[in-house]
Nucleic acid binder design. Sequence first.
DNA 1: CACCATTTGTCAATCGGTTGCCAAGCTCTG
DNA 2: CAGAGCTTGGCAACCGATTGACAAATGGTG
Lengths: 347, 347
Amino acid sequence: MSRDEPNASDEPVATEGRAGRRPTIYDIAQKVGLNPSTVSRALNKPGRTNAATEEKIRAAAAELGYRVNPMARSLPTGLTGTFAIVLPDITNPVHFELIRGAEQVARASGFTLIVSETEASADLELETIETLQPSVDGLLVVASRLADEELAALAREKPIVAANHSAPSLPSVIPDLVMGLTAAMDHLHDLGHGSVAYLGLGDIQINRARWDLTLDLATTRGISAVEITVDAPTVAGGADALRRVRASGVTAVLAYNDLVAHGLLRAARSGGVQLPESFSVIGFDDIFSAELAAPALTTLRSPLREIGTRAMQTLIDPERNRVPSKVVLPLELVVRESTAAPSVRTR
Amino acid sequence: MSRDEPNASDEPVATEGRAGRRPTIYDIAQKVGLNPSTVSRALNKPGRTNAATEEKIRAAAAELGYRVNPMARSLPTGLTGTFAIVLPDITNPVHFELIRGAEQVARASGFTLIVSETEASADLELETIETLQPSVDGLLVVASRLADEELAALAREKPIVAANHSAPSLPSVIPDLVMGLTAAMDHLHDLGHGSVAYLGLGDIQINRARWDLTLDLATTRGISAVEITVDAPTVAGGADALRRVRASGVTAVLAYNDLVAHGLLRAARSGGVQLPESFSVIGFDDIFSAELAAPALTTLRSPLREIGTRAMQTLIDPERNRVPSKVVLPLELVVRESTAAPSVRTR
DNA sequence: CACCATTTGTCAATCGGTTGCCAAGCTCTG
DNA sequence: CAGAGCTTGGCAACCGATTGACAAATGGTG
């Protein structure tokens, strides 16, 4: 099988298009002596051509190693066979499972997935969506920083589905905050906590929803609640918040996500602060590392994978992606070691 | 701002193409009274048209909100402005930073990134690459399961760069195994270990390279070495291996990656096995959760982000992506709590 | 056997850009 | 002021598919 052209010096190898370029439907048509349009129909419109003809064409296509050129196809049809997922931060483990869920559904249906990161910037998110729109059949926006009206305007161009946050004008797939936060507050209340700090992200929609609800549920139970804002939803952001948490005097903390909780745990450990003796911590999402931490993290398990799959299914289904439906998935409390009764100092 | 068409029942809203479709260069041409080809040149060939003309065209384009249609452009040029990254498992944190590095470089150069997962299957990887090829200008394959010859054959179609594993026929970007594993073995040797188990993945290229080298370095130092194969490079795979690790009687373990190491740590903790007293563990990659584990994981820090950026740079640069260059990046040992001298049982 | 209804394949336009070639218009020089 | 040389814009072909309209072929019926 040795290639017999090692003397390639004077060959037109420089440009990418080598002589034996990809076969097209014209090549197939010529080979079987039919019109290209017949080839196109044989390959894509079942029943539109004679079974024998179709078979002959398929055989020729297989022999030539033909593959449809998605770019060429998208021009007349306006359909690209591609979806994009737009998220604030690729490296946040929360998004991995979500991406995977979306990717698997897309691929199973023959679609390709473009992934794009917005670095948690609204401007960049807008720019990204606009740039991507001509190349895709729809978009999945995760934890968007854009206002509902902006998203609604963009969605007039191509369908958009919101994942992990709620956009009233769009179909959205979100975890059941009421269910999850109720369980978390009940848990703290049962343990005897009388105060809680919510470690949040400030003024973005997804964060507002959580804090408002937390406040409601806490006061209903006679628990005092304060909000402490972190700079970023990351380990570093959580670590930075330790001083303020301690200063606040609360006995329990509800973190915006597990990364923030992890940061708090790590800062506590390296600062010699005993957890959960000094204060309890509840995370959000249940990323894979939650159970690996010390102490293992009590957290709200978000059905990330399913959020991704359901969101992508909604996007693919033209029936549903236009109406602002809302899919709410269960959010369960997973109790591990980072929560305990307050003021039971072991030393 | 209330939309005045709630009575949409008889309107042609069903089909996606609404009346006010995207503007094209023909619209711009008409608006300024010039030929579409002039518009195309004004927008893309700096200096090819009169400055005044260009300005007029740009103004019209901006006013119309024109955006080039990537699909239409790719047809005559054969260039898509898109790259794909193909990896075995999206949810492995190892790949996050790598993806992010690649994505940032791609975006900074105006390219779009497609992400595709192969579920660690060679067949699926081949299928994926072939499917994606017509849609992209090149591919980044991470920890490929394909043989070098297969990759070389595929690379004749579109450029391919290998990341995190070495493919002799392709440009590759890899961590410096010799540097890293030497440091790891020196560390174990200094601590006084006389035996080590390598927790590997079996017969794939990236794993072979590590095990062969580990074996060399161990024997040179008079350390006995055995290979223990895990089913999957995951937390579950690592947890499963605990029994075999204990049975082997080694005092130290080198894991294929941090996920496997994490699994081992977790299984040990829940099984009441004290670490690092019973045996030391060294991971690979230094994913973000390594320092969060208990005990915090000693590991080889792989420059994931930089692997991603360098690989994407190589892919973008037509000078380099054809020659099988090899970029080797430093792999450093990060000592934390999971390694200690052997047989110093604290109890 | 004439005629109509289906099936099946062909023609040609189209999607939205890019680009080689050509010609008109301009400037500059001798 | 004629001619060379350069700049600038226009024409038309082309990339690889899809699809509406139509015609040829086929089969069935009275």
